[in-house]
């Protein structure tokens, strides 16, 4: 057994589904008239079917990074390729689970989930109702189809956002802390469901989280971000067998090793961030 954490090999191959090349994003801050560099010089290649988790302190540019891949934010410099094509905007091959849910408050749960495939050809047939219903069941919200977002808890709203993203079966799922507001028990169930879903459909996933355990449990690889400016600190291959159960993995030495390593990495970051403020 190796006791060292080896950086994952950077295979800049043509076979990667997402490739991020020297990506820099800076925002114009209207109030001060200055530029804020959110992320700088980020390189990453994601293979088809890979589950990549992204860890990093708050404000290090994780959402920004994901938004560029989603086509919502334009790179200041550098490039993002999806399936070999430069990203020029959002597309049906990528769906996003938003950190702030971004549900339409005037729509019921059912209609919010339907929003995920509304603009696609899928809606012309008759099977779409079943698909919407299936997605709702998958996230455990059966019985709440006719509720409005304001009648749901934060965690439930987040699950509506998840259902909306998976309903159209996109090739790539971009998830921004999708389990952040879910209670521990539901999170564990949902985490297992996400893992099963991904395994069954072979989706490629980029999954942002604040939880070290979650990053290890879900990821094939873990991307650790640092802040000021946001950049990739390291990329770690988890190398744990699937399926992984939270209970059995707790005693796995590899899990413990990864967890300690990530703790140290993030603690250093958090301290650095606190000092620089």
């Amino acid at each position: 057994m190796t006791t060292t954490i080896e950086p994952a090999e950077d295979e800049a191959s043509v076979s990667s589904l997402i490739s991020v090349r020297d990506l820099t994003v800076s925002y114009d801050v209207a109030r001060t008239g200055k530029k804020l560099v959110a992320i700088e010089g980020v390189d990453l290649d994601v293979r088809e079917g890979e589950f990549v988790t992204v860890l990093g302190p708050s404000g290090c540019g994780k959402t920004t990074f994901m938004n560029v891949i989603a086509g919502l934010v334009k790179p200041t410099s550098g490039q993002v390729l999806v399936a070999g094509e430069p990203v020029t905007g959002p597309g049906p091959d990528r769906a996003v689970v938003f950190q702030d849910y971004a549900l339409l408050p005037w729509r019921t749960v059912f209609d919010n989930v339907k929003f995920g495939l509304e603009m696609q050809k899928a809606l012309k047939g008759s099977g779409w109702r079943d698909r919407v219903q299936e997605a709702i069941e998958l996230v455990g919200l059966s019985g709440f189809e006719h509720s409005y977002p304001r009648e749901l808890s934060g965690g439930m709203q987040q699950r509506v956002g998840l259902a909306r993203a998976i309903v159209a079966e996109p090739r790539i799922l971009l998830m921004d802390e999708p389990l952040g507001a879910v209670d521990a028990l539901t999170r564990e169930v949902m985490r297992a469901e996400i893992e099963k879903l991904i395994a069954a459909t072979g989706k490629t996933v980029l999954f942002i989280t604040h939880s070290i355990e979650e990053a290890i449990l879900l990821g094939d690889r873990i991307v650790v971000f640092k802040s000021h400016p946001g950049a990739i600190k390291e990329v770690i291959e988890t190398g744990l067998a699937r399926p992984r159960s939270e209970r059995s993995i707790q005693s796995d030495p590899r899990f413990l090793e990864l967890r300690d390593h990530l703790w140290d990495a993030l603690q250093g970051e958090a301290t650095a961030a606190a000092v620089s403020k």
């Binding site: 989603a70 086509g71 959002p90 769906a95 996003v96 971004a102 339409l104 495939l117 509304e118 603009m119």
Partner: peptide, 14 residues
């Protein structure tokens, strides 16, 4: 109008 609603619209092709 919340920018994130507009983002959601764009992501889902609206």
């Amino acid at each position: 109008v919340s920018p994130s609603l507009v983002s959601a619209g764009r992501v889902f092709g609206v």
